[in-house]
Nucleic acid binder design. Structure first.
Lengths: 240, 240
DNA sequence: GAGTGGTCTAGACCACGGT
DNA sequence: CCGTGGTCTAGACCACTCC
């Protein structure tokens, strides 16, 4: 860790904040002191503070200083899964979970008007249409409905889908996943959901829609992940 | 608008991107060209590009340049309600909606162990406990369950709750809302939800939990907003 | 008025991508 | 190898907070 000056400062400050070193005064040392302590430039110090602010640990007030945000065990968890990448597999890697994937459907189709409307893919291009059920601790908790642009992401097989498409994309195809845009909704459960998910009494699902772009700016994926209620949490940080 | 050099550059570039000026080559001009064009420093140019990247419009690749992300009408909507502040009132100010608030319950209580566990407020402090139903176009769509630290946010009345607590906090009390941490879940509907929301056939709700901090770093609010399915969307951007 | 973070300039060098 | 963005330094001045 800590390859850059900036990272060293960031890691050190974060440790101290979490250890409560600064907690009494509820303030970080002023920039000049940090510059002196770490023998670095203002740039590195400010960048480290910026990252701490992005994580919701501190807040800068012009003319006053850098304030620490109260962090209780409850609010602590916010600082964890803020912006994760990869599939749900990695998304839950921190929790120790028994995990399995069933490929329910695997097709290659041409995008028509309706599908284009839904996925934002151009009409006429070939896509892989894949449906996979994710089991956590034996529970049918998530169904992933994927559409991958077959020109940008060629050669997907059912076998790859059973393991990890993202692993295949990144390691075998060497595609860089640059940006993922996400939408979160609560939808009434549809036929597919009722068929494949253990909804119990519930008749709704969470729906996480992901649109992924490679580092050439091209959208290569549209995915809907329908998940059962009461099991998943998403976090977001808003700063003024 | 555009008070700073940085803002001028940012606004100009954003306009051009949305107008499609750069779309053919799928690239932004290189930094040096932008420095020349806007007669500014590299700092301002890079800051503008950073903001465009934060919005999901572009993506920087070291050694190659700044790539434009495909933006179709569908993915465009992602760029809207990314990080909004204020209550739901402002959250939906862009849509033209008939809007009303009913105060269902208004109490002042002392935080006990259970409530402390839930809200992360200290045991023993007084809080306002408020329940409000939000009607959009006459539909009972949202119930807000608020807890405000009565020491940090004194003097809330039912009348204020009916109008806008955030307006009162910011304009009358002059409190600066620095940071809001949010969690999103899908919960099975409870008694209060079934009583106050127009769930129709659905028996689940979305649950947006907000924890707000003032610019002294103190948590002054814990709120759960339970909302009906199929009506609300949340967005998130993840960058590598 | 003193102290603090926010903005900005003008450089330097490094790391990576493509040729 | 060259061109590009990423990191970093050493300053200057401004805007805001607090006494």
């Amino acid at each position: 860790m800590a390859k850059n000056t900036f990272e060293t400062i960031y890691e050190t400050l974060k440790q101290r904040i979490l250890a409560g070193t600064y907690s009494i005064k509820m303030r970080l040392p002023i920039e000049d002191d940090l510059i002196t302590e770490f023998d670095s430039s203002r740039y590195a110090v400010r960048k480290a503070i910026k990252q701490l602010a992005d994580e919701g640990l501190v807040y800068s007030v012009k003319g006053r200083g850098v304030v620490l945000l109260e962090h209780t065990p409850q609010t602590q968890q916010f600082n964890l899964n803020l912006g994760q990448l990869s599939g749900i597999k990695a998304m839950n890697a921190d929790r120790q979970l028994d995990y399995r994937t069933d490929v329910v459907s695997f097709k290659q189709v041409i995008v028509d008007a309706d599908l284009s409307e839904q996925t934002a893919f151009e009409i006429g291009i070939p896509v892989y249409a894949i449906q996979r059920v994710r089991l956590f601790n034996g529970q049918h908790a998530v169904i992933d409905i994927n559409y991958f642009n077959a020109q940008l992401v060629p050669g997907i097989t059912a076998e790859i889908a059973r393991k990890s498409i993202y692993h295949y994309i990144q390691n075998d195809l060497n595609i860089k996943i640059a940006v993922v845009k996400r939408m979160l909704r609560v939808d009434s459960a549809n036929k597919i959901d009722r068929e494949h998910l253990e909804l119990g009494e519930n008749n709704c699902v969470g729906n996480m829609i992901s649109i992924a772009f490679n580092d050439a700016g091209r959208q290569f994926e549209y995915t809907e992940s329908h998940f059962i209620p009461n099991e998943f949490v998403f976090t977001q940080l808003i700063r003024n």
